[in-house]
C-alpha cells in the first residue's frame, strides 16, 4: 500500500519500507506463536488428562468411579469411589469459604468505605503479604500451631490431622483474594448511587448493604467463585494438615484425603508409573479440572448476565 503512495520525495529521506514491513511481519508472527503457547498448554493439559483417564477407565469402569463408596486403590480389592475424595475436598473448601467470604467481604467494605487513606496504606500491604505467603507455609501453620494449640484444647478428641484446621487456614489463605477482588468491585460502584441512597435518608450501613453491595454483586460473586475454585485446587495446606485418610462423610474433625492430597500421595513416589493407582491420580486430576472449569464457566456466565453498566 505504501509503495503505491510514493510518500518519499526526498533523496536524503529514503526509509526502507520493505525492510520495516518484513521486521513487523516477523515480529507479529513470533509474538502470535508465543500467544499460541497458552493454547498448546491448555491443549496439553486436556490431552494428558483425557489420555490417562481413558486408560484408567479401561480398567475401572466409570460407573464404579462414581458409585463406589470407598477409596482404596492400593488394596487388593481396590475400590475407586471418587465421592470419598470429593467429600473431603468439599469439607476443607466449604470451611475455607465460610471463613474467607465473611472475612474477605467485610474487609473489602472496610477498605473501600470505612478506612481512611492512611489506615488503608497500612492495611493493603499487610493483606498483600498474606496473599503472597506460599501455601506450604500455611500448611505448616495449620499443622503445628492451629491444630495442636488452638483447636485441640477447644475440641477434645480432635484428630491431629483434620479437615477443620486445614479448612480454617485455607480460608485465611484465600481471604485476601476475596478482599482485593471484592474491593475493586465495590470501589467501582459510582458515587452517585451512594448519594441517591443517602438523599433518601439511608444510613451508611443501609446504603452499603442495600445499594452498594447489590451494585457490586457480579464482581463479588466472581471473586467468590474464584475463591471456591482456588480452595478446591489448593494442595499443600490440605496435604499437610488434613491428612491422608480416605474418609466419606461430613465430619470435619477427622483426617480426610482430598483430591489434591491424593495426587500428591501418588506422585510422592508410592505408585509405579502405569499402575492403576498411578492412572487413578489422572482420573482424579480430570475430575478436579472439570470442577474448576465448570466454576470458571459459571463465573463467566454470571458476570455477563448480571453485570450492571454504569456511566
Amino acid at each position: 500500500m505504501t509503495a503505491e503512495l510514493r510518500l518519499s520525495r526526498s533523496e536524503l529521506w529514503q526509509p526502507n519500507r520493505n525492510k520495516n514491513k518484513l521486521v513487523e511481519n516477523t515480529v507479529k508472527a513470533i509474538t502470535a506463536a508465543f500467544a499460541f503457547v497458552s493454547v498448546i498448554a491448555t491443549f496439553g493439559i486436556v490431552l494428558t488428562l483425557i489420555v490417562e483417564t481413558i486408560h484408567f477407565f479401561g480398567v475401572v469402569s466409570p460407573l464404579r468411579f462414581i458409585s463406589e463408596t470407598r477409596w482404596t486403590p492400593l488394596f487388593s480389592s481396590a475400590q475407586f469411589g471418587i465421592i470419598v475424595l470429593i467429600s473431603a475436598t468439599l469439607r476443607t473448601a466449604g470451611i475455607a469459604i465460610l471463613v474467607a467470604l465473611p472475612l474477605g467481604l467485610l474487609s473489602a467494605i472496610c477498605l473501600s468505605e470505612y478506612a481512611g487513606v492512611r489506615v488503608r496504606k497500612i492495611l493493603k500491604p499487610l493483606l498483600e503479604i498474606l496473599a503472597g505467603i506460599p501455601t506450604v507455609v500455611f500448611g505448616y501453620f495449620a499443622l503445628t500451631l492451629v491444630t495442636p494449640q488452638l483447636l485441640q484444647p477447644l475440641i477434645p478428641g480432635l484428630s491431629g490431622l483434620n479437615a477443620l484446621s486445614a479448612g480454617l487456614v485455607l480460608g485465611l489463605a484465600i481471604m485476601p483474594l476475596v478482599t482485593s477482588l471484592s474491593e475493586d468491585a465495590i470501589y467501582a460502584v459510582p458515587r452517585s448511587l451512594r448519594d441517591g441512597a443517602y438523599a433518601l435518608g439511608a444510613t451508611k450501613r443501609e446504603t452499603i448493604i442495600a445499594v452498594v453491595l447489590p451494585a457490586a454483586l457480579s464482581g463479588i460473586v466472581s471473586s467468590l467463585i474464584l475463591a471456591v475454585s482456588r480452595a478446591i485446587g489448593e494442595t499443600m495446606i490440605v496435604t499437610l494438615a488434613a491428612g491422608q485418610t480416605p474418609n466419606l462423610g461430613i465430619d470435619p474433625t477427622v483426617a480426610v484425603l482430598t483430591m489434591t492430597a491424593y495426587i500428591v500421595q501418588i506422585f510422592k513416589g508410592d505408585a509405579p508409573a502405569g499402575s492403576i493407582a498411578y492412572l487413578s491420580a489422572y482420573a482424579v486430576g480430570m475430575t478436579l479440572f472439570v470442577m474448576t472449569l465448570l466454576l470458571n464457566i459459571f463465573s463467566f456466565w454470571f458476570v455477563r448476565r448480571f453485570r450492571e453498566k454504569y456511566e
Binding site: 500467544a35 499460541f36 497458552s38 493454547v39 498448554a41 491448555t42 496439553g44 493439559i45 494428558t48 488428562l49 489420555v51 490417562e52 474464584l226 475454585s229 482456588r230 478446591i232 485446587g233 489448593e234 494442595t235 489434591t260 495426587i263 500428591v264 506422585f267 491420580a281 489422572y282 486430576g285 478436579l288 479440572f289 474448576t292 472449569l293 466454576l295 470458571n296 463467566f300
Partner: peptide, 25 residues
C-alpha cells in the same frame, strides 16, 4: 478469542494439574 478464553481458563487451573501436564509432557 480462542487465545483470550484460554488464558482466562489457564489462570483458574489448579497448580497441581500443571504438575500432571509437566510430568506427561
Amino acid at each position: 478469542r480462542l487465545v483470550e478464553i484460554n488464558i482466562n481458563n489457564l489462570a483458574g487451573v489448579p497448580s497441581i494439574i500443571y504438575g500432571l501436564l509437566g510430568l506427561f509432557l
